[in-house]
Design a protein around this nucleic acid. Structure first.
Lengths: 129, 129, 129, 129
DNA sequence: GTGGTCTAGACCACC
DNA sequence: GTGGTCTAGACCACG
């Protein structure tokens, strides 16, 4: 995995974990890879992984069982709000930024649409290469 | 101005300058506020402002005239691409993130639309308060 | 049983054993449940239980009879001091802490009294639910 | 400062900070000693201090100003609840423990009173030494 | 084997 | 100078 050096690695690891959970790669109740294993996969120090997980454990997204491992919570309400929360946060950030660049609501939507169309064509093109 | 602790302040100042230019608050050729003045406005240390400006000068967005001050470039092609570049970058980032959360292209657009509607109603409400 | 993550489980098990003895649930001379049985009851690993018992045996609170099991000591002087010792230790700890928070002796006593009254009312209420 | 090796050092540092604040040794708004300074005073590693402070910052008890230092919050409501919270937690813990040892409410109070009297005499004695 | 804590020491952003 | 992040490596509690 590649990290953006403009934002703390542990923070990006948190986002990564969110992704794995929301996309269903890590189902509720399943055990995460061992911290040392994660550290290897992400080519990062164990402590850095643990710092990320610690916050997720505090937020009850993950459950830590001593000597056994870390697990995705099985609490459905926690997980349900999680996905929506992340999407809304992301949308809010980009919306604020684009408004600050003087785009109107309508312009933002059309910009998004044309961007996606363009990406669609590009990806198609990339795929054909 | 409020800064996000998770990303370097000098980086956020760069974005701020971009904003001022693109929204026309700082017209091409006009002189920027003095560095010390900017530092006060942004409640940030002078060194931090200077680091941000240094990079903008290197990118030829700003022109530094020794003993006179810093000025927004008058080079139209530079400015023309700038705005579009920033918007595309932002859209690209949010698009990648939302795709990583398993949203389809269509879901991304509708999520954006409903988000904007919701914000519109909220802001209206806030305004009436 | 629930354990506090912040202090070693084997240590909390020792406290649990003390409790059983002092409250008379485990009379002097009686045999303890098998280690495996205790481990199940406390939802804890056998090794962890054994570590706790080892220390209690060393302190002569428990007597280990090879191939037969573990027994509560019948030595009355040992048991007599035990209860008092535990209470005094607890009182000492809380007293020191509250003094460190600037409470006077008198404030500590009244705080304790009002706390107990409050708890009494709450428990009564819970009971009626 | 001496630490109890039965509970994490960073946790005890948190308690220490609480104490300093509640007893007024660290007034609202005042700057804490530098983390490296605290580490020396507490004969502990810098990271350990920082781990403790990080949680207090997250809880808004402390305010961290980049490049300047850490400060006790000036938010009065946060501080007002803090002291009471700590005392109640402490009382709750000791109450539960003593009840588990079969003491009645009344016995707990009198035990506390006699303990304090005894301590008072002892301290007096120590003082005269 | 698992996770949790602590240390020593480095580097960065910011004042 | 300040705090924040990261690394490498050790040791402990627990299963």
């Amino acid at each position: 995995m590649q990290f953006d050096d403009k934002v703390p690695i542990y923070y990006q690891i948190k986002q990564y974990v969110y992704q794995q959970i929301i996309t269903g790669k890590w189902q509720p109740g399943t055990q995460l890879p061992a911290v040392r294993q994660l550290a290897v996969e992400l080519t990062v120090n164990v402590n850095t992984v643990q710092r990320a997980l610690r916050e997720l454990i505090a937020a009850q997204i993950l459950i830590s069982k001593r000597g056994k491992g870390n697990f995705v919570t099985t609490d459905q309400t926690t997980l349900a709000t999680l996905a929506d929360q992340l999407v809304q946060d992301r949308l809010g950030a980009v919306y604020d930024d684009l408004r600050a660049l003087n785009l109107t609501d309508q312009q933002i939507i059309t910009a998004m649409q044309t961007y996606i169309e363009k990406r669609g064509r590009q990806d198609e093109h990339d795929f054909n290469d």
